[in-house]
C-alpha cells in the first residue's frame, strides 16, 4: 500500500520533470526539478502515510473535485480545463506538501510580516467619491444605482 502510494507520488512529481513532447526542455529547470524531487520525496517518506492522512493531505485531485473548487471560486470551467488543472494542481500540491512535516511542533504561525494594529485616520470630514465617479465604470446602471442580474435563482 505504502509502496503503491510512493510510486504515485514520484510519478506525479516526475510529470513536471519529463522532457516536453515538442522536444523543448530546459536543463536548468530539470536539474532543479530533480533537487526538488529529492527534497519532496524525502519529506514524504519521513511523513508516512498515516500521518499524511491525519494531516488531511491528499495528493490527487479528480476533475470532479476541481469542478467543485471552481464552483466555490465562481469560475466556470470547461471539462478540458478541469482535466488539465487537475493534473497541474496534483503536481503543485505534491510539491508544496513539504510544509506539512516541517511545521510539526509548537510553532507560532505568521500571517503577516508586521505586527498588525488597528489604525484610525483623524476624524476629519473629507469629500469621498461622487456618485457619478463610482458608477462610471459599472457594466450597467439605472436610476443612479448599479444594475445587476437577478440575485434569486428561478423557483423550481
Amino acid at each position: 500500500m505504502i509502496s503503491h502510494w510512493l510510486i504515485g507520488w514520484i510519478s506525479q512529481l516526475g510529470r513536471c520533470l519529463r522532457p516536453r513532447a515538442d522536444g523543448c526542455s530546459c536543463p536548468h529547470a530539470s536539474a532543479f526539478g530533480q533537487r526538488w524531487l529529492r527534497l519532496s520525496s524525502a519529506a514524504a517518506v519521513r511523513m508516512g502515510r498515516a500521518r499524511r492522512q491525519e494531516l488531511g493531505v491528499i495528493l490527487s485531485l479528480s476533475p470532479q473535485e476541481v469542478a467543485r473548487l471552481a464552483d466555490l471560486a465562481r469560475i466556470e470551467l470547461s471539462l478540458a480545463e478541469q482535466e488539465r488543472l487537475a493534473g497541474q494542481l496534483d503536481v503543485i500540491l505534491a510539491a508544496v506538501a513539504v510544509v506539512g512535516p516541517a511545521a510539526q511542533g509548537d510553532i507560532r504561525p505568521t500571517s503577516h510580516p508586521l505586527p498588525l494594529v488597528n489604525v484610525f485616520r483623524p476624524d476629519v470630514l473629507a469629500p469621498g467619491l461622487g456618485q457619478a465617479d463610482v458608477l462610471a465604470m459599472s457594466p450597467a446602471q439605472e436610476g443612479g444605482r448599479f444594475k445587476v442580474p437577478r440575485i434569486l435563482e428561478e423557483e423550481a
Binding site: L72, A73, V99, G100, A102, A103, I107
Partner: peptide, 26 residues
C-alpha cells in the same frame, strides 16, 4: 485562485495554509 480556494477549504486549511504560516515563522 482554485489552488488558493483548495488550500483555504475546510479540512485542508491546517494541512496547507496553517502549515505554510508556520514555515513562514521558521
Amino acid at each position: 485562485v482554485i489552488l488558493g480556494t483548495y488550500a483555504l477549504s475546510s479540512g485542508y486549511f491546517d494541512a496547507y495554509y496553517g502549515s505554510a504560516q508556520k514555515v513562514r515563522t521558521l
